[in-house]
């Protein structure tokens, strides 16, 4: 599903984050990217999603060249991707329900099916009561869960989660962890998680990529 060849990443300020990364994650596989803050975890997720351009060389997702290539535009309508951002990422002029429904509407999912998927995703993440509110009117935890609900409703082939448990209390953490576990055992879904603390994901069977300054280590499950 994901092929990284001789990948090099630079931070926005030009600082080199990593170089020479070769990695393949098969369809249904899981990858946990860990490392200290500023080590390039989020940047790597954005490069895989086609949102940021790497310093070199090649990224392929579902057999398509993303870099060099058109990035996310090259995947639109061809590869279904769900990205739960650590912060932000929700359209501020739409309610949580509309945020969850928007990708489905744009990708041509029939209205009736879209409604069912949105409702079930919002209920599963405990957002039914605040579904009609806009992101600024709900808590940071609800915004984080709305990001997950959008991914859940989309049922994507590639799930990218950026620090999905950060800032959650034990109850909210349990809801998110249950969802992540379901994605990790789904053979039709490739899961990539970036997290500062790998301990919360120790129960997942996933390849582990440790980023730490110039050094990279890859550990198989």
């Amino acid at each position: 599903m994901i092929e990284l060849r001789d990948l090099a990443l630079d931070a926005p300020d030009g600082r080199p984050l990593l170089a020479g990364l070769d990695l393949t994650v098969p369809l249904g596989g899981n990858l946990l990217v860990t490392g200290p803050s500023g080590s390039g975890k989020t940047w790597l997720l954005k490069v895989i999603a086609g949102l940021e351009c790497p310093a070199g060389d090649r990224v392929r997702v579902a057999g398509r060249d993303i870099w060099p290539g058109d990035g996310a535009l090259g995947m639109a309508g061809r590869v279904s991707v769900g990205f739960a951002f650590a912060t932000g990422g929700l359209l501020s002029n739409l309610s949580l329900a509309e945020n969850v429904a928007l990708p489905l509407r744009f990708l041509g999912v029939p209205a009736a099916e879209s409604q069912v998927r949105v409702k079930s995703a919002l209920v599963r993440l405990g957002l039914a009561a605040v579904a009609s509110l806009r992101p600024h009117a709900v808590s940071a935890v609800a915004r984080k869960h709305a990001n997950l609900a959008r991914v859940l409703a989309l049922q994507p082939a590639l799930v990218l989660l950026d620090d999905p448990l950060e800032g959650l209390d034990s109850a909210d953490r349990a809801i998110a962890q249950e969802l992540i576990l379901a994605w990790s055992v789904d053979s039709a879904c490739t899961l990539v998680i970036a997290a500062e603390e790998p301990a919360s994901f120790s129960h997942l069977e996933a390849e582990r990529l440790q980023l730490s300054g110039a050094s990279i280590s890859v550990e198989s499950p």
Binding site: K46, A49, G50, L51, G71, A72, L73, M75, A76, G77, S80, V81, G82, F83, F85, T87, G88, G89, L90, L91, S92, L102, P103, F106, L107, R150, L154, L160
Partner: peptide
């Protein structure tokens, strides 16, 4: 500009919503 800073443009592109069209 504020959509860009809030990650909204990235969120659109990542979920298959073409920013040129949307």
């Amino acid at each position: 500009g504020s959509m860009q800073l809030n990650g909204e443009v990235d969120a659109l592109a990542a979920h298959g919503i073409n920013p040129y069209q949307y």
